[in-house]
Computed example of a mutant assay.
Amino acid sequence: MNIISLDTKAKEFAQAVKETEEYSNLNAAQARIKLDPVAQELINELEESQRRIQEGQAQGQQVNSEVQSFQLLQQKAMANETLKRFFQAQQDFSKVMEEANQIITNELFGQISS
Rank of each mutant, 00 (worst) to 15 (best):
M1C: 09
N2Q: 05
I3Q: 12
I3L: 15
I4L: 13
S5P: 10
S5C: 10
L6F: 10
T8S: 10
T8G: 09
T8M: 11
K9V: 12
K9N: 07
K9F: 13
A10S: 08
K11R: 14
E12I: 06
E12K: 11
F13D: 03
A14D: 09
A16Q: 05
V17R: 00
K18Q: 13
K18P: 11
E19T: 04
T20Q: 01
T20C: 00
T20H: 00
E21K: 12
Y23H: 03
S24P: 10
N25P: 10
N27E: 11
N27H: 06
A28P: 06
A29M: 01
A29N: 02
A29T: 03
A29R: 00
Q30K: 06
Q30C: 03
Q30D: 05
A31P: 06
A31V: 01
A31E: 09
R32E: 15
R32M: 10
K34H: 04
L35P: 09
D36K: 02
P37G: 07
P37A: 07
A39T: 09
A39K: 03
A39C: 04
Q40G: 11
Q40L: 06
E41N: 13
E41M: 08
E41C: 05
L42A: 01
I43H: 08
I43D: 12
N44I: 14
E47G: 13
E47Y: 11
E47S: 15
E48I: 12
R51A: 09
R52H: 14
I53S: 04
Q54L: 11
Q54I: 10
E55A: 05
E55V: 15
E55D: 06
G56W: 04
Q57G: 08
A58E: 03
Q59W: 01
Q59E: 10
Q59Y: 04
G60V: 07
V63M: 01
V63W: 02
N64S: 12
S65I: 04
E66L: 15
E66W: 13
V67A: 12
V67Y: 05
S69I: 15
L72V: 11
L73F: 01
L73P: 01
Q74T: 05
Q74M: 07
Q75E: 08
Q75V: 10
Q75A: 12
K76R: 02
K76F: 00
A77T: 02
M78N: 11
A79L: 10
N80I: 02
E81K: 13
E81Q: 15
L83G: 04
L83C: 00
L83Y: 02
L83E: 02
R85Q: 13
R85A: 14
R85L: 12
F86S: 01
Q88T: 13
Q88P: 05
Q88F: 09
A89D: 01
A89L: 00
A89I: 01
A89P: 04
A89C: 02
Q90N: 02
Q91S: 12
D92W: 00
D92V: 02
S94A: 05
K95H: 04
E99A: 05
I104P: 08
I104G: 03
N106E: 14
N106D: 15
F109L: 06
G110Q: 05
Q111A: 13
Q111W: 11
S113F: 11
S113A: 12
S114G: 14
S114A: 14
